[in-house]
Design a protein around this nucleic acid. Structure first.
Length: 506
RNA sequence: GGCCCGUUCGUCUAAGGGCUAGGACACCACCCUUUCACGGUGGUGAUACGAGUUCGAAUCUCGUACGGGCUACCA
């Protein structure tokens, strides 16, 4: 059997959204599952849509996700170049060959003429007229012009495109791995442009030529490509490569609240749709990314993998290695899946809980730096992490959950303590300071023990004293068990905070 | 409008002719915890509709409805 070679072919026009990442994931998992190669090809045939930094950004995203390509413009390979703009010369000859063989033709229509045709033919029943078999006889192309006229125009260097000549009333069968057999009648298809006036191929020509030249064995791409699939099938046939044609699978779309998930949804609903932050160089607009939101790449790909696929069991948490082992394209759903940010967060939480303290520490450098927390000893930091880790749903929750370990509370939630504050309670804490001074060893259980004994001696309920104690150390009604906090803070710091708070409470 | 794809709890999904239609997220209740989470237990909640095939249909077929995608010299 032919070696498995799959590819992801993004056009570098902006951020990489999760639909794209999932397409990469499924390609990658399939390739690795079959011991094959994953190729990344940059589809930059549209010069007008070039966006600076987008290509590098895509590579960075894949690196962060742990889905790096075996071959690409960055990683090299035997089938390069991997950037279509650098393959420009390759496509022309195939276009000419198609014309010579009668499968395509030259078209000289200007943008204005095309626009006029669409306007003239536009009716309520047909709001978007196509350049198809029914009208190509009325346009300016090598089908309507004589050979001499055509040659004259070509020799004169008049701008022209090459269009595929859709056959009339034929049925094109597509055997999709996920959807089964799909058929199209060619009468409903239009004469797509194959080679543009600037000499660049359109996606349709480039994808077929490159997939052939790069010996791609399987094409897994988004469902939005389904309508143009028959054009690709026909080109494989017309170019004489039918027996080498890859297997096809069209992946279901990832939906937002209103249709295909888009970056507009990110702005509107406040959840990330890109893998990493992306700032549009033209508008300066920032679209949030999962990485910066505090997601673990392990959780991110785990979540994405399960959005449209499952292994048939009830397992939901998978490592990348497990996914590689268990993934099968046949088990991918045919229906679109709505993006659920809550579930994404649940996956992240599960992954954070599974992290060891060491692993967690290595992931929070940036969060500490962003919050000006520096010079913390490893032992102390690890104790904090041990208490706080499982309370973090996102990595970025770490600061909110732990800041009081690094900075004495700047203010107190007085509403939680003031109404019930009394002379008796003040006396208790004065005595408790003395008690703490004698507490040895300084451990959670001993601190708690001393606290409760003293409360009993004072004939007070320990429960009613715990909340004030918490506010003293933390500033508010949150955080891990209060005696654990005191233990980590240390005797001196705990006593200091109690002293300071007693004054503030009075 | 045309073409194509899709349709099981609110969401992601399991079940590919034979069960009380299973799990997870979210939600609710209780337990744990006299912070808040975690955790534990339980609960609400679905086969879009209509025909047909069959002893039997979530599962097969057809129709309808609804949702989505495409309809550029963009990918």
């Amino acid at each position: 059997m032919k070696k498995v070679r799959v590819r992801f072919a993004p056009s570098p026009t902006g951020g990489l959204h999760i639909g794209g990442v999932r397409t990469v994931l499924y390609n990658y998992l399939f390739a690795k599952n079959h011991g094959g190669d994953f190729i990344l090809r940059i589809e930059d045939t549209d010069q007008n849509r070039y966006v600076k930094g987008a290509e590098e950004y895509i590579f960075d995203c894949l690196k962060w996700c742990g889905l790096e390509a075996d071959e690409s413009s960055l990683h090299g390979g035997e089938y390069g170049p991997y950037r279509q703009s650098e393959r420009k010369e390759i496509y022309g000859e195939y276009g000419e060959q198609l014309v010579k063989d009668g499968f395509a033709y030259y078209a000289f229509d200007t943008a204005e003429e095309l626009e006029k045709m669409r306007q003239d033919l536009k009716t309520e029943a047909n709001p978007s007229p196509q350049y198809d078999h029914s009208i190509r006889r009325k346009m300016r192309n090598s089908l309507t012009l004589t050979m001499d006229e055509t040659k004259k125009l070509l020799d004169a260097g008049i701008q022209h495109v090459i269009r595929i000549k859709m056959p009339e009333n034929e049925t094109v069968f597509l055997n999709d791995v996920i959807r089964g057999e799909i058929h199209f009648n060619t009468d409903t298809l239009d004469d797509k442009v194959l080679l543009k006036a600037d000499g660049m191929p359109t996606y349709h020509l480039a994808v077929v030529v490159d997939d052939h030249l790069m010996e791609i064995s399987h094409v897994f791409r988004g469902e939005e490509w389904l309508p143009s699939a028959p054009v690709h099938l026909l080109l494989w046939k017309y170019l004489g490569w039918e027996k080498h044609m890859p297997k096809w699978a069209h992946l279901p779309l990832i939906l937002g609240p209103n249709g295909k998930l888009s970056k507009r949804d990110a702005l509107k609903y406040g959840f990330p749709v890109f893998a990493m932050n992306w700032t549009d160089p033209k508008t300066g607009e920032l679209i949030a990314g999962f990485r910066e939101k505090g997601f673990l790449p392990e959780a991110f790909i785990n979540f994405l993998a399960l959005l449209g696929w499952n292994d048939g069991t009830e397992q939901e948490i998978f490592t990348k290695e497990e996914l590689i082992k268990k993934f099968s394209i046949e088990r991918v759903h045919s229906g679109g899946a709505k993006f659920d940010y809550e579930k994404a967060k649940w996956f992240n939480h599960e992954w954070i809980k599974r992290l060891t303290i060491d692993e967690f520490r290595l992931r929070i450098d940036k969060i500490l730096a962003d919050n000006n927390i520096a010079g913390i000893g490893k032992d102390y930091l690890d104790k904090v992490i041990a208490l706080v880790k499982d309370r973090c749903i996102l990595l970025t929750d770490f600061y909110d959950q732990s800041h009081f370990f690094f900075k004495s509370p700047a203010e107190y939630d007085l509403n939680a303590v003031k109404p019930k504050w009394s002379g008796g309670k003040k006396r208790f804490f004065d005595l408790f300071v003395e008690e703490m001074k004698a507490t040895d060893p300084w451990e959670s259980a001993f601190i708690e023990d001393g606290f409760k004994k003293l409360a009993m001696m004072q004939d007070m309920k320990p429960g009613e004293l715990q909340l004030p104690f918490r506010i003293m150390l933390v500033g508010g009604k949150f955080g891990p068990p209060v005696f654990d906090i005191a233990a980590v803070l240390g005797k001196e710091q705990t006593i200091q905070r109690v002293h300071k708070a007693i004054v503030a409470f009075d």
